[in-house]
């Protein structure tokens, strides 16, 4: 009953920090399911991007609600690193695809050498 009350509270109260954090949590978990369950390397990379975006959202939320701009700097860094990661990940995926005509994660066992 208590938790039900809490849920009601959540949806009826004006949009505040909790709502944005909740959205961020949902987004993160969707990304996590994607990483765990998909077998396509590119989709796994995209799910990681989704998780990074969720983290960014929580950074921006805290930054806004505590009026502290340091959080936005972190978002800046995360974005740069995400772009870099996408670049290298895609380069590796292209190389593997050229060799095996396949983007399934199982073929990445070949990387063991």
């Amino acid at each position: 009953m208590n938790s039900l009350n809490m849920l009601g509270d959540f949806f009826l109260s004006p949009v505040g920090i909790n709502h944005y954090l909740g959205l961020s949590a949902i987004l993160f978990c969707i990304g996590m399911v994607g990483v765990l369950r998909r077998r396509n390397v590119l989709v796994i990379l995209m799910s990681i991007e989704l998780m990074l975006n969720a983290v960014n959202l929580s950074f921006v939320t805290f930054s806004h609600f505590t009026q502290n701009i340091n959080g936005q700097i972190m978002v800046f860094f995360v974005m740069t690193i995400a772009a870099a990661e996408a670049g290298v990940g895609l380069a590796i995926a292209v190389t593997i695809f050229k060799r095996f005509k396949e983007v399934n994660i199982e073929f990445f066992e070949q990387l063991k050498g």
């Binding site: 991007e49 959202l57 939320t61 930054s63 806004h64 936005q72 800046f76 974005m79 772009a83």
Partner: peptide
């Protein structure tokens, strides 16, 4: 998400999200 950042008044981050991501 960029528009959510606009809601949170992180304008520059929203713009960078549009350009970079």
């Amino acid at each position: 998400l960029a528009f959510v950042y606009f809601l949170l008044k992180a304008f520059f981050i929203a713009g960078v999200q549009l350009i970079v991501y």
